[in-house]
């Protein structure tokens, strides 16, 4: 494959991943790592490091918007980031010691969990009362919510950091529920705070891969530019997907991706992408 075609395909991969991530409220990592490993056949470390750099790019764009809307709780983000960043450094170091197959299998499990979270959010949206949503919005607007269960929050976000450093994902899929369900942070504030946190976490993970020489400059730069442009365009011109059918469809796609990642990690000969 010529360099021009490779760069164009990587830009397109980033563009699609960034757009899908913005539409579904996810980081692009769950799409980038499978695409780079299963379709382009890059090694797991190259895919993970490129994904982490792309996560930094999308986090900077998204958290700049959230900060302008004054939704981000910076003191909370800085406190939780202590355990998350330490987790990301540990995860990045651990990734250099374990087999790539382990990373594929873990990634498959995370993709399954992401699909489950998407389906659960549809069920929650159907069952939640408009009143509770109004109360939470008022709490965010008045800056009046209480943060509790710091130990659980620090533990879970530390785990999210470790997964981020190992697998190249932002970890928002763990951080947002941890803040929302365990620490009592309203969902919008949790999403905004997590958006800033994932960028810092990804920097910690990416620097470990960089030091190990696992960053492929051309791949990382092309994907990061594509993801940033895709996420910016999607958030500006497209509306976040709330249609149940589409969410079921994307959850099915994630399950398919997860199966293929597991298959690659376990060396199973089942039909699917990536041989």
């Amino acid at each position: 494959m010529s360099s021009v075609v490779l760069v164009l395909m990587l830009l397109l991969t980033g563009l699609v991943s960034g757009s899908l991530g913005a539409l579904l409220g996810l980081g692009g990592g769950v799409f980038i790592v499978p695409a780079l490993t299963l379709l382009f056949h890059f090694s797991a470390p190259v895919a993970v490091s490129s994904s982490l750099i792309a996560v930094v790019a999308t986090s900077c764009g998204a958290s700049a918007n959230y900060l302008r809307q004054h939704l981000t709780n910076m003191p909370l983000a800085l406190t939780l980031e202590l355990s998350t960043t330490a987790g990301a450094v540990a995860g990045g170091l651990a990734a250099g010691l374990v087999s790539h197959d382990v990373i594929f299998v873990l990634f498959g499990l995370i993709v399954f969990f992401t699909a489950y979270s998407m389906l659960r959010s549809v069920a929650q949206a159907a069952s939640s009362s408009p009143e509770s949503g109004d109360q939470m919005s008022t709490a965010v607007a008045n800056d009046s919510y209480q943060v509790h269960s710091w130990t659980a929050g620090l533990g879970l976000t530390g785990l999210a950091g470790m997964l981020s450093g190992m697998l190249g994902i932002g970890g928002g899929v763990v951080k947002v529920p941890a803040m929302y369900l365990f620490m009592g942070i309203p969902l919008r504030a949790a999403t905004a705070t997590s958006s800033f946190m994932v960028g810092v976490t990804a920097v910690a993970g990416a620097s470990i891969y960089w030091a190990r020489g696992d960053v492929h400059l051309l791949v990382a730069a092309s994907v990061a530019v594509g993801v940033y442009v895709g996420a910016s365009l999607a958030s500006r011109y497209l509306r976040r997907v709330h249609n149940r059918f589409l969410i079921y469809l994307f959850a099915a796609v994630l399950v398919f991706v997860g199966i293929n990642m597991m298959k690659a990690g376990l060396h199973l000969n089942l039909p699917g992408i990536g041989g």
Binding site: C60, G61, S63, A64, N65, L67, R68, H70, T72, N73, M74, P75, L76, D143, Y145, Q146, V147, G199
Partner: peptide, 19 residues
């Protein structure tokens, strides 16, 4: 918990976007 600092939010937003 009071966390909001409008001036700092604006400054950080500009740093992240520009960088």
């Amino acid at each position: 918990m009071q966390f909001r600092d409008l001036e700092l939010d604006e400054l950080l937003s500009r740093v992240l976007r520009l960088g």
